[in-house]
Every structure is written in structure tokens, then in C-alpha cells.
Design a protein around this nucleic acid. Structure first.
Lengths: 142, 142
DNA sequence: TTTCTGTTGATACCTGGTATCGTTTGGGTA
DNA sequence: TACCCAAACGATACCAGGTATCAACAGAAA
């Protein structure tokens, strides 16, 4: 779990103000655990206006500590992350847990593939769906 | 462009009825070209009820002739495709055009990566953003 | 032609997200 | 410490995507 200090420092370092609503939302999101929806974030910070929740979530995305996760069903989830660099997600269909991973190898392969098609690649998005180790052992036990 | 016959046959073959609203929506989507939003589909088939548009789009996804495309900004686009097998998308940020591609190599790599994390991979989603060949030559010309 | 089931459209509702706009506030400066 | 102002805020309205409900309708098989 990313510390509140880290999150707050990232905001401050980017030149934005560290306001009370932002602090409250950060705390609320941290309490939600490692994955949550926009609506859960809104619910979890009742003293913070809806618009501000979305504004702050966008801000956190901009400074690289919150990332969007495209779920199996196309819905969008969110996840706090310490790791600001580009990465991908492993998403458990069972429990919803998300994990980050990076793979330079795949990156290179994609760039090469794009070149072959005359496509100038600027970015990409890769989500992997399945069942995480914890849920797997859980299932085996039954 | 996928033919209307192909699309209609896919529906019939899956045991669903080929109704007038479904035919109209298919025609409307074909007229929209190779990528469109849900709202555009709704607008393009004014004689078809909104709920039916969404139901039919889900049906077409189920039979593998319509796919969701997650755009750069997180919005969802749609694309008719003849290619029912799993594939990925090249999405042009300039003109919005989407292209399909498949790559078994990447697939294998992902499965291996998942195994290493104890993650039992069931599926994935890969979207590549950039500038397509046509837009590239267009930009060079300026 | 009847019948039955799949399908439809209207409607209401939910979630995610943005735009607007008048008010508040953080934090640098006098 | 008080002042100031841009940044941030909240309420609100709005938009898009999507689902649930339910009474009415229509393919297609008997």
C-alpha cells in the first residue's frame, strides 16, 4: 500500500496545492484497499464533492500514483500505485485484485510489430485477466 | 468491411432470430464505417430502440463480429470485424482508425509471465496507440 | 392459425465523467 | 499578521454508456 505521505508529496512536488479535500480523498482511497471504482471513492469520501473526487483522481493519474484498470467486462477500476513508470496489470477475475508488472520484452516486440505495419506507436495498454495465486490455492482446497 | 450477410448469418447460426431491428442496426453500423461509438450507433438507427441497440451490440460481441476498443482516453469504441478469433488493435490517435492484428508470440510470452507469478491467465486485452501509415504520410507532406 | 418464446421499445435508473459558475481557501507576500 | 489572488472547491446540470423492468409484439414451428 502506498503511504499517504508519498501520495501527498507527489501532489506537492507537482506544484499543486495540498488541500483538505485532497487529503481526505487520499485517506479514503487508501482505506478502500488495492482496487476500487470511481463510485466507491465518491462514497468513501462523503465530505468531498463529487466533482472534486473526479478532479483529484485525474490529478493523481497525472502525477502517476493512480492508474485506471480496464476490467474484464470493460468497466474501469482504479488502483493506487507507487510505481509511476509504465506498467501493465494482472487482474484476478475472482477477487478483483490487481498487480502491476512491467515487461520490456513485450514493449520491444510491439514496437517492432508496429513498424512492420507502418504504424508509429506512441503508447499501449495491456491488461491480463485470470485467477491470482491466492484464489487458485483457495479453489484447489475445495 | 464485413458484409451484412456475414453478420446476419452469424446471428442466425447462433440460434438467435434475425429480426427487422437487428437488420437495420447492422446496416446502420456498416454505414458508420470502421469505428464508431455506442451513441453514434444509437443515432444511426433512429427506428431502433436504445435498449435494443445495446442488446444487439452485446449479441454481436457474443458471436464475435463486433469488438470493443478501449481508446487512448479510456472511452469505449466499437468495430465490426470478420475475424472472430482473439486479436488486438492498432488505434490511430489522429484519425481514430482501428486495425486488427494477432500475435501468437506475445500471447505465449504473456502466458509464461503469468505462470511465473502463479497467475492463471484466462484472457487479456491489448490496445496499441499511435499514428497509422496514412496519417503519417499526411503529416510528412505538411 | 394458434401458440410460445424470443425480442422489442419505453422508461427509469445507475455509473462514470465533464462543464459551469459562484464561493472558499492555501499559501506567498506586504 | 493581514491581505490577496489564483487555485481549488461544491453544487448542479448535463452528457455518454449501459442495465433492469415490463407490457406488447412478432418470428417460426406446430
Amino acid at each position: 500500500m502506498v503511504s499517504a505521505q508519498t501520495l501527498e508529496r507527489r501532489i506537492a512536488d507537482s506544484g499543486r496545492r495540498l488541500t483538505e479535500p485532497r487529503r481526505q480523498l487520499i485517506e479514503a482511497m487508501r482505506n478502500l484497499g488495492d482496487h476500487f471504482t470511481a463510485d466507491q471513492a465518491v462514497q468513501a469520501a462523503p465530505s468531498v464533492g463529487r466533482a472534486t473526487v473526479f478532479r483529484t483522481m485525474r490529478l493523481l493519474q497525472d502525477v502517476g500514483v493512480l492508474c485506471q484498470v480496464v476490467l474484464d467486462n470493460g468497466a474501469i477500476g482504479y488502483r493506487l500505485t507507487a510505481n509511476a513508470r509504465h506498467h501493465h496489470h494482472l487482474i484476478c477475475s475472482q477477487c478483483g485484485a490487481t498487480d502491476d508488472f512491467a515487461s520490456g520484452g513485450i514493449e520491444d516486440q510491439l514496437a517492432e510489430l508496429g513498424r512492420q505495419c507502418g504504424f508509429d506507436m506512441h503508447g499501449h495498454r495491456l491488461e491480463i485477466y485470470g485467477v491470482c495465486a491466492a484464489c487458485n490455492t483457495e479453489l484447489d482446497r475445495r
